[in-house]
Amino acid sequence: MKIIKAEKVTFEYIRRDEEGNVEGINRAVDNVSLDVKEGDFISILGANGSGKSTFAKHLNSILLPTEGTVWVDGMDTKDEEKINKIRQTAGMVFQNPDNQIIGQVVDEDVAFGPENMGIPTEEIKERVEEALKTVGMYEFIKRSPNSLSGGQKQRVSIAGVLAMHPKCIVLDEPTAMLDPTGRKEVIRALRALNEVEGITIILITHYMEETVYSDKIFVMHKGSIAMEGTPREVFSRVDELKEYKLEVPQITLLAHTLRQRGLRIPECVLTVKELTDAIKNC
């Protein structure tokens, strides 16, 4: 079952001068086609300006493709009538934790989505508690979001999406503004969601370390998909990745350099343990 299917999606920003005349057209997304299987953990990698965020906004009907079609769980995102259903199926978490929290108390914020869906009060309460427990933020239920750390805020945002019971969560650089601890917290929460709850995760990021555990990686460059495959397949092409201004995880880079210097190490190493084992076997 394909939860998300994009076919030849193209999106153009039209730049206008002060009088409103068309000055030029920026093609942010260029002929992108991809399929996402339900229950997968997908990463979309790309440097700044690669069009990955623009593409992400198509998955939840915030932007509509200039050309091509996006289906979310079989629903065309252009279908006005299904827009609420689409947004409930594919929840979205953004980059800046401060700018996406609406409530003044954690539970009120998590309830915002279900409130919009018109869920009865009793059920909202259950969903809020359940969602906060899933991301490990239940003890903060009565706190003000302003008193939380970045990683905690981002987990609250994820809970806010979870409470809408989505099949798929799209995260647009959720860790870009966080410190390393916060980044780890968020990624751990996402992996748990994917493995335990079976929710499809689409993680958009430019930190390659975060994509190590994904089922599939898409690399975007200048609006189109430049590479795709499992982390091992993608990371083994170190030189190609450098061309797209992406940096492979340090451990992979180290292994790659050692290999170039003549050490007999397998093609692609993703974790410290793999590398130490490989060196021992040399």
């Binding site: 939840n60 915030i62 609420n84 947004r87 409930q88 929840g91 979205m92 953004f94 800046n96 401060d98 700018n99 996406q100 609406i102 539970d107 009120e108 309830a111 915002f112 989505g113 279900p114 409130e115 919009n116 869906m117 018109g118 869920i119 009865p120 009060t121 909202i124 309460k125 809020v128 806010g160 999406v161 809408m164």
Partner: peptide, 23 residues
């Protein structure tokens, strides 16, 4: 911030006060 927040609210299915329930 306002524009970000509007986007986030929309993504979470906000469509005005009609048919909203309350926690």
């Amino acid at each position: 911030r306002a524009s970000d927040l509007a986007l986030a609210m929309e993504a979470r299915g906000y469509h005005g006060g009609e048919g909203r329930t309350k926690l």
